[in-house]
């Protein structure tokens, strides 16, 4: 089991590392998708089927499209990418932000207590329980996520439909 975990972790991290190193943005994006699939595989390894498949459906199925579309629609010529930083203050800013994120993540990882392994049987959670959990104790989080997504959707619709005013009613 540990071997499987190590393999998944290696592939996932390697995909992420190669994605950062590549110059071709589309390849990077596809590797990012692969990375997400690796995370889904990790969830699956941990026995969280629902989360794993949700991750696969949402990230590999949907978010990847957003990323790829964004890359395609904003892609500039390879010459316009610069590897040298603009100024020393930007380098410091980047290091600070990166370091802060890393610190928070590491702090969270280190402070979480690991349950003694193999002591408990894998819990079987039915969809019904999952639903009542989401609608009960975690309703606030669900609602907030829903509102954010709705706002994003409406914003996208407004941006996309601004040029409809002058072209008049569309005919089919």
């Amino acid at each position: 089991m540990t071997l499987a975990f190590l393999a998944i972790a290696f592939v996932t991290v390697a995909a992420a590392a190669v994605a950062m190193a590549l110059r071709n943005l589309i390849h990077s994006a596809l590797l990012l998708v692969f990375n997400w699939a690796g995370i889904a595989a990790f969830y699956l390894w941990a026995g969280a089927e629902f989360v794993a498949f949700s991750q696969l459906m949402v990230y590999v199925g949907a978010v990847s499209m957003v990323v790829l579309f964004a890359v395609l629609l904003t892609q500039r010529s390879p010459q316009s990418f610069r590897e040298q930083p603009d100024s020393i203050s930007r380098v410091i800013g980047a290091l600070l932000v990166g370091g802060a994120v890393l610190g928070v993540l590491f702090g969270a990882v280190l402070s979480s207590r690991l349950a003694p392994s193999a002591a408990t049987a894998t819990p079987t959670i039915s969809v019904k329980e999952l639903g009542s959990l989401l609608m009960g104790p975690h309703a606030a989080a669900l609602l907030i996520v829903g509102v954010i997504l709705t706002v994003t959707l409406i914003g996208a619709v407004i941006i996309a439909s601004t040029d409809h005013a002058e072209s008049g009613k569309d005919e089919s």
């Binding site: 590999v60 990847s64 499209m65 790829l68």
Partner: peptide
């Protein structure tokens, strides 16, 4: 036999879109 079989089905189905994009690009 998966507890989240239907979800698995549609997750695998959703991944096909990626292949369509890869083919086009």
């Amino acid at each position: 036999e998966l507890d989240a079989g239907v979800l698995y089905f549609f997750a695998a189905g959703a991944a096909t879109e990626l292949a369509v994009f890869m083919a086009g690009w």
